[in-house]
Amino acid sequence: MKAALLYGTCTGKTEAAAELIRDEFGDDFFETYDDIAQVGAEGLSGYDFIICGIPTWDVGEIQYDWQDVYDELDDVDLAGTKIAMFGMGDQGGYPDTYQDAIGMVYTKMLERGAEGKIGFTSTETHDFEESKGVIDGQFCGLALDDDCQPELTEQRVKDWAEQLKSELGV
């Protein structure tokens, strides 16, 4: 399986979470582990599986590097590519836009032919009002909040990695 773990970050928190995920899968699982700015939209095609790390930035916006990719996705064919999302957000400071970015990028990638429904997680341990990241009553990926719940990040990543491995059959 040709797999990539790609992230965008401004504060380093999403990169730190990506490192935890990489550690759970092992160094050899991902062919590419990189900042999305180095890969770009065209670089997404050709993978069997991509984990995308996307922080929600400002008030419900996609992080800058991912925004550039998002804007160029209309020209990319992702048919046959399975995707899983993880996002960083601040449910205390931005309860009306918590984890919006994962939902926005997830939806756009599905429109480009990607296969989803992998790595969805419960909203139960999060306290927020609205989120574009909630699809069918669950987050469309792993929701992390190192501002309000940093003590939960490592266990959430471990549990999510095991869930993904099971869903992927690896």
Rank of each mutant, 00 (worst) to 15 (best):
V76C: 03
A37L: 10
L20P: 05
M85S: 02
G40K: 02
E19L: 11
A41D: 10
Q63Y: 03
E31V: 14
E42G: 15
L20R: 14
T32M: 00
L44G: 08
R22N: 03
I83H: 05
A16W: 09
Q63H: 07
D28G: 00
F49I: 11
F30T: 01
Y47E: 14
M88R: 13
G40I: 01
E72F: 08
T56D: 11
F30C: 13
Y33T: 13
G46I: 01
Q63E: 05
G92W: 08
A17D: 01
D27L: 14
I54F: 12
E24F: 12
G60W: 08
E72Y: 00
G26R: 07
V76E: 01
G40V: 04
D96R: 03
M85P: 01
R22S: 13
I36L: 08
Q63K: 04
D35W: 06
A79T: 02
Y94M: 12
D74E: 11
Y94R: 14
V69Q: 09
F49S: 13
D35S: 11
E24D: 12
Y33N: 11
I36A: 08
K82M: 02
G60R: 05
C52G: 09
D74Q: 10
Q67W: 09
S45M: 02
D23C: 04
D23N: 13
I83S: 01
I51L: 11
G26Q: 01
L44E: 06
G43Q: 10
W66H: 08
D75E: 04
K82Q: 03
T32E: 04
E31C: 12
P95I: 03
P95Y: 11
E61Y: 10
E61T: 15
E15L: 12
G53V: 07
Q63T: 05
D34S: 04
E31L: 12
I62R: 05
D96G: 10
L78W: 00
D58P: 02
W57F: 01
P55R: 14
G80Y: 14
D28A: 11
F30N: 15
D34Q: 07
I36K: 03
D35E: 09
L44F: 07
W57D: 01
Y94F: 10
G43F: 05
A84Y: 05
G87W: 00
A41H: 07
G43D: 11
T56W: 06
A17M: 05
D34A: 06
I50G: 13
E72H: 06
D74V: 02
I62T: 14
P55N: 06
T97C: 05
D28W: 07
I50V: 15
Y47D: 09
Y94G: 02
P95F: 11
A37T: 10
W66Q: 04
G26F: 12
